[in-house]
Computed example of a mutant assay.
Amino acid sequence: MNSADDQRLIEAVQARDETAVGQALADGADPNVTVGRFRGSVLAEAARDGKLGIVRLLMDAGARMEPADPYTASPLRSAVLEAHTEVVQFLVARGALAAEPATRSSVLTDAVSHTSFHPRPAALATLRVLLEARAAPGPADEAPLVTAVMRPVAPAALRLLLAHGADPDQRRSDETPAIVIAARRGDHAAVDVLLQAGADMEARDRQGRTALMHAVERNERPVITALLLAGADTDAVSADGMTALHLARGWQRQNVQFMLGERHAGLDDVPIARTAVRLTPTHVRLTGDPQMLQLLASVIDIALDDLGDDEWQCRTGTNAETAQSVAARLREDMVRAANASWHQLDVTADELGAARSALVELAYGTTRGTPAGTNRLEIIDLLAELDRQLSR
């Protein structure tokens, strides 16, 4: 072994100089030399950079596909994590899957995860290569479909897994069905993909609860809609005696009660067995450009002027003085963030409720005026954006 030749090989690989790599190998450099601490072998380095020509030279010279040590990634994993599809395909064809240690999560699990962490076409193509090569999850890994739903990944990745044989009724290691996991997380896109693939919408977890029950309890209305349109059973009873409607009543979710077929809904005190904790923030930080915060103030002013104090309080359930106060604060009290370009204002839950109520009045109520330069559809969009954030 010649350390000078090895160093030349390392430098050539890092410089992505295929000619220099070939010369260093011809001069006797070790194809398994490590680049440095935590970076692994020169083969892993070349795979990480996506340099297929260099990978081929190193493999032909006898480079090993195992990780250089227990703390570094293998060449295959290095290529998967960077979504270098051609390198992954080459290494798989040379037997790299068999060289992966069983003590780590599988490269298949990593590939599924990376369609969420670093989404791009190459990540999906890399996952396809591994699926076509029949890559399998590791002994401690969840099934790929479960991993995908738990991340969550885009529908394209779910459809790819299903097209390569994933079971839409796959269960997690604790026996929770994939469709229940998706429903609990509010992932209506995943629920829809699973339903189209034939997943059992009435599948139950260990508590005997269905996807619909979990979606109702968490107020995930897009998921509820998808399940109801697919024909989910609203009368199903869990092991502890709960139904979807019972859960909606217990959480006083009146909109959901109507979705489930109720004709009348009130704030009834209904005891239920809860499987979720609901957060009720008492203060919220509004952030945005000054003109956006001032726009909210103008929305409140218009609604108040149109309705009058008494009608405002009757229609919105919020105090007119609170609405007037937050409108003034939106104009006068906002400050620029210390380490960012936006402006911000901390408001109470009641103040936020007043701002939202004003948006509702301009979007869907009898008030027809809108702030200068805006229209009703833009107010509807702003309300929808606020509601999405509040539902997270």
Rank of each mutant, 00 (worst) to 15 (best):
Met1Asn: 12
Gln7Leu: 07
Leu9Gln: 04
Ala12Trp: 10
Ala15Asp: 14
Ala20Gln: 14
Ala29Met: 11
Val35His: 07
Arg37Leu: 09
Phe38Arg: 11
Arg48Trp: 14
Asp49Tyr: 11
Gly53Asn: 00
Met59Phe: 13
Ala63Asp: 05
Thr72Phe: 03
Pro75Phe: 01
Val88Met: 02
Glu100Lys: 00
Val107Gly: 07
Val112Leu: 11
Thr115Gly: 02
His118Gly: 06
Ala125Cys: 06
Leu127Pro: 00
Leu127Tyr: 00
Arg128His: 14
Glu132Asp: 15
Pro139Cys: 00
Met150Tyr: 11
Ala157Leu: 13
Gly165Val: 12
Asp174Leu: 01
Pro177Asp: 04
Ala190His: 02
Gln196Tyr: 00
Ala197Leu: 14
Ala199Thr: 01
Asp200Met: 03
Asp205Phe: 03
Arg209Lys: 07
His214Tyr: 04
Glu217Phe: 02
Asn219Phe: 01
Ile224Trp: 14
Gly231Leu: 04
Ala236Gly: 08
Ser238Asn: 05
Asp240Asn: 10
Met242Gln: 13
Gln252Asn: 13
Arg253Ser: 14
Gln254Lys: 08
Leu260Lys: 04
Glu262Ser: 08
Pro271Lys: 03
Thr275Asp: 13
Arg278Gln: 01
Pro290Trp: 15
Gln294Cys: 10
Val299Ala: 10
Val299Glu: 04
Val299Ile: 07
Val299Cys: 08
Asp301Arg: 15
Leu304Thr: 06
Leu304Glu: 06
Gly308Leu: 03
Asp310His: 09
Cys314Phe: 15
Thr316Gly: 03
Glu332Arg: 09
Arg336Trp: 02
Ala338Met: 08
Asn339Ala: 13
His343Ala: 06
Leu345Gly: 01
Asp346Ala: 11
Thr366Gln: 08
Gly369Tyr: 09
Pro371Cys: 11
